[in-house]
Write a protein that binds this DNA or RNA. Sequence first.
DNA 1: GCCAAAAACTAACGTATGTTCGTTAGCAAG
DNA 2: CTTGCTAACGAACATACGTTAGTTTTTGGC
Lengths: 201, 201
Amino acid sequence: MARIAGSSGARTAEAIRRAALRLIWRQGYAAMNLRDLAAEVGIQPSSLYNHIETKQALLFDLVHDHLTALLAATDAALEAAGPDTLERLRAFAAHHVLYHLEKRAEVYIANSELRALDPPNHGRVVALRRAYEARLITLLEAGMAEGRLAVADITVAAYAILAMLTGVCTWYRPGGRLSNAEIVDQHVALVMAGVLKRSAA
Amino acid sequence: MARIAGSSGARTAEAIRRAALRLIWRQGYAAMNLRDLAAEVGIQPSSLYNHIETKQALLFDLVHDHLTALLAATDAALEAAGPDTLERLRAFAAHHVLYHLEKRAEVYIANSELRALDPPNHGRVVALRRAYEARLITLLEAGMAEGRLAVADITVAAYAILAMLTGVCTWYRPGGRLSNAEIVDQHVALVMAGVLKRSAA
DNA sequence: GCCAAAAACTAACGTATGTTCGTTAGCAAG
DNA sequence: CTTGCTAACGAACATACGTTAGTTTTTGGC
């Protein structure tokens, strides 16, 4: 047999991306092999190459698409939050946690497989990450300038906050004891309590 | 030639562990290969097997030894902090950050290569991690019982705090803008601000 | 209904990898 | 000085991996 009845390029391509996301998430990029990936999709290893350029390009596409989607969604959430700095900060934290709860695999890969990207791809991804971090840093700077936040060092605070919020990916399981909203709310509360100036509650 | 003049088992074994730590830290366990490791140590690949059982056993040893050392050091730091819950919590946070600054490679591997451990090893390591997390959870429970802390959910708070404090490993570089003490202090401040009951400053 | 493009197949290549085997030279105890 | 253990060596094995080549069947536009 050759081409399979009912096969569709777009459908297979999506199946490959979904399966790759899952496998890389579970095992890591280096430990995932294309034979397992093909088996998961239900095709032969060589057939993958009708849809991907190389294994490396597949990883880059997954990471790149995730980061651009995250940036766009974040900007939309900030836009919706209005002009007030504290409101925007809350919105950023809430959106970050919720997004990370819902896209655990994408997030985890984008954070932990950076080193698996070859130099040109690595550079582009790092630039996107920096752009994302800049969103938070800008908010902290604004809050400091307005005298409503109090942190010793903005960069350290930004990284600490991002680390804390991203941490949900490592332990969250759907259908757990707490609702997503409860998890989001508590993280927002921890962040705000940590950075708010004592007087301005 | 066969045995090299001046070669010593203990010295080579330590060199292997150090090199493995560095390579796994940089590339990940799956991406590290024993030929590169041997080259780093300056011996032939087959000679590794005079000192390690398998690649997997090497990873387990590294992770296991790190976690037991971390547990012991943490208990010593808590002991030194005295009986007061808030002091112990500060001591825990400070020690965690400082230890993580100094042992970035060990920590990173222990956190990110869990999935590379085969089931029996995985189980033992997870048990050690849980024991460590329990130290923090116990402190938070005590602080809540004393009415001096205010968090919505102790487990979530514990994981969030650990994620935040462990985050330093991903961006810290020795010789950077801030001293270790400054980084530690700020993280302790962020944690305490996040969990302290408003009245009890 | 025909035909180029798409999307799958089978087979294989070249290399990389973890590990084993047999051997040999240095070291320390008797 | 001998002898047994240690720690290295070189060579190789078996497998696994990413990828390519060539082929075959289905699909969709004319």
